[in-house]
Amino acid sequence: MHLSTAQLLEIVSAFPDSTLVFTEDGYCIAHLGDQETHSFSCSRLLTGRFVADVFCEEKAKWFMQQIRMSIFDQNLRVSEYSISPMDMRLPCSESSKLEREEWFEARILPLQSFIDGQRGVVWAARNINERYKLEQQLRFLSETDALTGAFNRRRFFESLANHFQTYHRHYLDCSLIMIDIDHFKAINDEHGHPCGDRILKQLYEVIKSQLRDVDLCSRMGGEEFAILLPHTKVNDAFVSAERIRKAVEQQLFSYQHGCLHVTVSIGVSSIESSDISRDSVLQRADDALYQAKKSGRNRSCQHRHLMKV
């Protein structure tokens, strides 16, 4: 017993996921499936159109790259991608159901036969919105300090390792700032640990307000924070450290029974060509931090050029 072409088409059309057929010039000949109830169907918008007619230039270029790379490699290609209202080029009346960013997984397989003289691919798209949101949530929990909302040690060391490799490959500067709250144990002993927790949370907000979007601030444990500043030389990192120190000094920290003034000591270092591991970068920052505390606290020190302010 063999299935007829009509029966095969009926079976494929019943699939919950979208199955599209693209020619190598980005024209969507048809789509099958897509029986799940979604508020937005990209497949129906694409059918009978070129990707460049549906999407903005950047997104259309990405679609074309996936199609052509699949044809060139002659292998199954799996990619995750998002589509947002900003990606759409069609009139609002056609794409109005797309209210937010939607995530998909594409399984792209090159066809062995030609379509009107062109090579083509089958593009099976599955909506992975719920899975993506869960993965993002799990990732956030795995790399975030639960008390302050800063990144945790795991994320810090992962980022430091990446910047360390980048520096030795491309010589892109990266500096490190270590921050420690002065007399934090005395604060906990005198005012209680809930007060200490509130200060840690507020301190992170003060630090964050002085950083760029590309900078990464992590709580290393206890009262210590570390900051990675990509594309930043050590002298510029020292200027940033001083800006943070002064902002903390001027901040009035509130807790259940009143307010406190808090100060921090800061050590600054940067990745250098002589470093053979990330540990040496951390050690220099720790040494500078120790020097800041030894010199009277509430100050920033820069390794090699220990500067007292």
Rank of each mutant, 00 (worst) to 15 (best):
R68C: 11
Q35K: 10
F15K: 08
F72I: 11
L76P: 01
A52Q: 14
A30E: 14
H31R: 10
Y27C: 08
R49W: 04
E58C: 10
S79F: 15
C42N: 06
D25C: 08
Q66T: 11
G33A: 06
F55V: 03
D34P: 03
D25L: 08
M69A: 15
T47V: 04
C28H: 00
E58G: 09
C42W: 07
H31A: 08
G33F: 04
H31M: 09
Q66H: 11
T23F: 12
T37A: 13
D73A: 14
D73S: 13
L46W: 01
D25I: 09
R77L: 06
F72E: 13
I67N: 01
K61C: 10
L46G: 01
D17L: 09
F22C: 03
S18R: 07
S18G: 11
L45P: 02
T47Y: 00
S79M: 14
T37D: 12
I67M: 04
R77P: 00
L32A: 08
P16H: 02
T47G: 03
M64W: 04
E24G: 05
E80W: 12
T23C: 15
D25A: 09
R77V: 05
G33V: 06
Q74W: 15
L32G: 10
R49T: 01
L76S: 05
A52I: 14
W62G: 08
L46C: 03
A14W: 00
S18K: 07
L20T: 02
D73E: 14
K61L: 10
C56W: 14
S79T: 15
F55R: 04
V54N: 03
E80G: 09
W62T: 11
E58S: 13
E58P: 08
D53N: 12
T37S: 14
R49Q: 01
D73G: 05
M64P: 05
F40H: 00
F63P: 00
R77A: 03
K61G: 08
R68F: 07
H38C: 06
F22Q: 03
A52C: 13
